[in-house]
Nucleic acid binder design. Structure first.
Length: 577
RNA sequence: GCGCCUGUAGCUCAGUCGGAUAGAGCAUCCGCCUUCUAAGCGGACGGUCAGGGGUUCGAAUCCCUUCAGGCGCGCCA
């Protein structure tokens, strides 16, 4: 059940009956202020203007066509022509009863269900994952989980970088270690160092860099030994990624890996397809596509190069092959790319060209879901204290350690194993939530103290709220499953909680539509805050039977919603903390 | 040079595609634990929505312009 959708439908129908155009939107929103009720319809003014009638008069006509008496006890016209809707308490109570008894918090499956391909995380396997991969991985995973919960068929695509010139350098370094009888596997256990050392040789040693370039060619021509070395490297690097995913609680698995190299065989046909459609222009020896959509005022066009002078392919070619694959093989209705905002132009070019070349159906949605940079407190991209790029695994270790210190301080008598586990959950949750709770598109400042704080819109606050509910449920000693009876919506705090609980669907549908998990975070933070107020104002366990039963159900529904919501964000909950 | 993004309270951030008197948290100040976890709750203070112009019943939101910052622009990915 989605109240907003329901009201939209009913009010829009009334507007049409009152003479508005069939496509006039009702624009129902959650009310900005309590005195405006629970929901407000903003569409009357616009529709009246279009019809050339007086807005308040039109509103009166709409109300005459509108019967909300089953769910609202007051529907009023306010201001220049708003319609304010005040929901009935007993309707909220019965809605909540349905919601609580349902398997999925009364969230209706999306109609129609789509096949959604989500490209996220996609680290470069030449190096270890670093802070720069955090946003794509965490945000993409939250959106994936949300889409799946809504019943869509989601195909994860971890488009890892496993091809390209820097692999020649890495292979040359592996070869050198082997020749010196050194343990390659040991050296690969720290990929960051391995990369640095290889780069150093490449920059300083001419025979080495010569060999590196040869190896790129050998690799691309399928030389057996070369492929073997490369496979070994890729395997180790993927294992590093998987360890990080596991620590981070990200749902990406091996079967989701669709590396760049997987498209190698498709690249010539991408170019020939484009050629067949006369989209290719040869310029200075390279095969280019000039799209007039990207011309500047002087008519100059930045081309997309799909084949280099000498025949090599580029990442644009690979991305085009990937789009085509996602459409033709995976059958996508929607393709979402959670990739750094800096690649915005690149994706606009890819999408435009893919459509022009017929690689995707006109109805298939291609969307770049860009995100901003993680900044340090100095306002520059986040670095470690020593000034290097922070390895993601090290960052996560630090988060867990910091959270553990806090837990140990607050609960000195708790067994260390439990302190460690709480530290792990809180630490990881804090890092993820700090990222998820910010608007995806803007840069954000990474700050340990803010993200680990128990105050404000943070993971610890939400986890604490959950553990408080859990504690009550434990103490109540009732069989949750058999707990029935009316949910009474009387006290102000009970009402606020009931309304919020009924709005879960609105929050997650917004995340699915816009790829913006921070809507869900804001919802959960609101919910937790409202629950805290309810908790302070409305005694549960000491209340008389009927009220106790009702409030316990409110608490249980809050727990279920918090847990489900956090789970969609990829965050574990704790029964105690 | 061209293009994209950002600019909201001292700080960190929201603002539901144009709606009503711009909201949270931190910080500062004032209250609340013999009752379900005070890692909490209630309240106060705090704003030229970077500046200017325009569009209209109505603008933080849309258009133009100026300023400030970030990023991207032919054979790397």
């Amino acid at each position: 059940m989605n109240i907003q959708t329901l009201l939209n439908q009913r009010i829009q129908a009334a507007m049409v009956a009152a003479g508005a155009d069939a496509d006039a939107p009702a624009l129902v929103r959650q009310s900005a202020k309590v005195q405006f009720g629970d929901y407000q319809a903003n569409g009357i003014m616009g529709a009246a203007k279009k019809a050339g009638s007086n807005p308040r008069e039109f509103a009166t006509n709409v109300l005459a066509q509108l019967d909300l008496s089953d769910l609202a006890d007051k529907v009023e016209i306010a201001g220049p022509g708003f319609i304010n809707i005040f929901l009935k308490n007993d309707w909220l109570g019965s809605q909540l009863g349905t919601l609580r008894q349902s398997e999925r918090l009364d969230i209706s499956p999306a109609e129609p269900a789509q096949t959604v391909v989500v490209d996220y995380s996609s680290p470069n396997l030449a190096k270890e994952m670093h802070v720069g991969h955090l946003r794509s991985t965490v945000i993409g995973d939250a959106v994936v989980r949300t889409l799946e919960f809504l019943g869509h068929k989601v195909i994860r695509q971890n488009h890892v970088g496993d091809w390209g010139t820097q692999f020649g350098m890495l292979l040359a370094y592996m070869e050198r270690l082997r020749a010196a009888d050194a343990q390659v596997s040991m050296a690969l256990s720290d990929l960051e160092t391995f990369y640095r050392e290889a780069k150093k040789c490449f920059d300083e040693d001419e025979t080495f860099s010569q060999r590196a370039r040869e190896l790129v060619v050998e690799l691309q021509s399928g030389d057996e030994l070369c492929i073997k070395l490369w496979n070994e490297f890729i395997e180790v690097s993927l294992q590093h990624c998987e360890e990080t995913y596991q620590m981070l609680g990200v749902s990406l698995a091996r079967q989701d890996v669709m590396p760049e190299s997987a498209y190698n065989d498709d690249l010539p046909s991408v170019v020939s397809d484009l050629e067949a459609q006369n989209l290719i222009t040869e310029d200075q020896g390279a095969k280019c596509v000039f799209l007039e959509e990207f011309a500047n005022k002087d008519g100059e066009i930045t081309p997309i190069i799909v084949q280099k002078t000498g025949g090599g392919f580029l990442y644009a070619t690979t991305d085009l092959a990937a789009i085509r694959h996602r459409q033709r093989v995976l059958g996508a209705n929607r393709v979402l790319y959670f990739v750094d905002a800096r690649q915005s132009l690149h994706f606009q070019q890819m999408f435009t060209l893919a459509r022009k070349a017929g690689f995707v159906a006109p109805t298939t949605e291609l969307t770049h879901m860009p995100f901003g940079t993680v900044m340090g407190s100095d306002g520059k991209p986040f670095k470690t204290r020593s000034g290097g790029v922070a390895k993601l695994s090290a960052l996560l270790e630090e988060a867990q350690e910091r959270a553990f210190q806090l837990v140990a301080e607050k609960n000195p008598d708790m067994p260390e194993a439990e302190q460690r586990n709480i530290g792990r959950v809180v630490g990881i949750a804090s890092v993820k939530y700090a990222d998820l709770s910010k608007n995806r598109t803007s840069d954000y400042v990474f700050n340990w103290d803010n993200m680990l704080s128990f105050e404000g819109n943070t993971a610890p606050y939400l986890l604490y709220a959950y553990s408080r509910v859990a504690s009550i449920v434990r103490r109540a000693e009732v069989d949750v499953a058999t707990l029935t009876g009316a949910i009474l919506v009387e006290a102000e705090q009970e009402r606020a909680l009931a309304v919020k609980l009924c709005q879960f669907a609105e929050a997650i549908e917004q995340v699915a539509a816009d790829g913006m998990p921070h809507f869900l975070c804001a919802y959960l933070y609101d919910l937790a805050g409202i629950f805290m107020s309810f908790y302070e104002a409305c005694p549960i366990l000491n209340a008389e039977a009927e009220v106790k039963n009702s409030r316990l159900q409110l608490a249980l529904t809050t727990a279920a919603t918090l847990q489900q919501g956090l789970s969609l964000l990829g965050i574990e909950t704790l029964e105690r903390m």
